[in-house]
Design a protein around this nucleic acid. Sequence first.
DNA 1: ATTTTCAAT
Length: 190
Amino acid sequence: MNPQIRNPMKAMDPGTFYFQFKNLWEANNRNETWLCFTVEVIKQRSTVSWETGVFRNQVDLETHCHAERCFLSWFCEDILSPNTDYQVTWYTSWSPCLDCAGEVAEFLARHNNVMLTIYTARLYYSQYPNYQQGLRSLSEKGVSVKIMDYEDFKYCWEKFVYDDGEPFKPWKGLKTSFRFLKRRLREILQ
DNA sequence: ATTTTCAAT
């Protein structure tokens, strides 16, 4: 059965962003994943259009659709064309799970015209070897996997949050957690 | 320095 195609949201509320994207290790109860994206449509080596939006995982009575799969089903249905190149960038609150990493890797293997960069606020179940392997398989497929730094949070705030003109206010410990996660990701990808 | 974490209890 095909998952239901949903359109992305335009943006998210400030409270949602601050809660879901907080990168502190004691940030628990983040039982959702939010995925902000930009899609650059590239023709003759220059960007000709942009799509941006926000997905979150969908929880229905019968189906669970992770945010990455929500993106892929929308992208394949509404955007993807074989003779066009795409630069896709994700900003996710959690990094992809094992299954999503596999699906994304497989998708990219079938579509050489799609380039993907992933910035993630936190690493999902990164203590488990099979989740680590998922991240490695993405990296080996040419996906650039990175930890979100201050500039990336600020960019997300400005582009994907109904910020009402308010500036991004970084939380205490953002940089320390970033450094830790970056080191951890480097160890995983080595 | 590292967790329950795309929920379920």
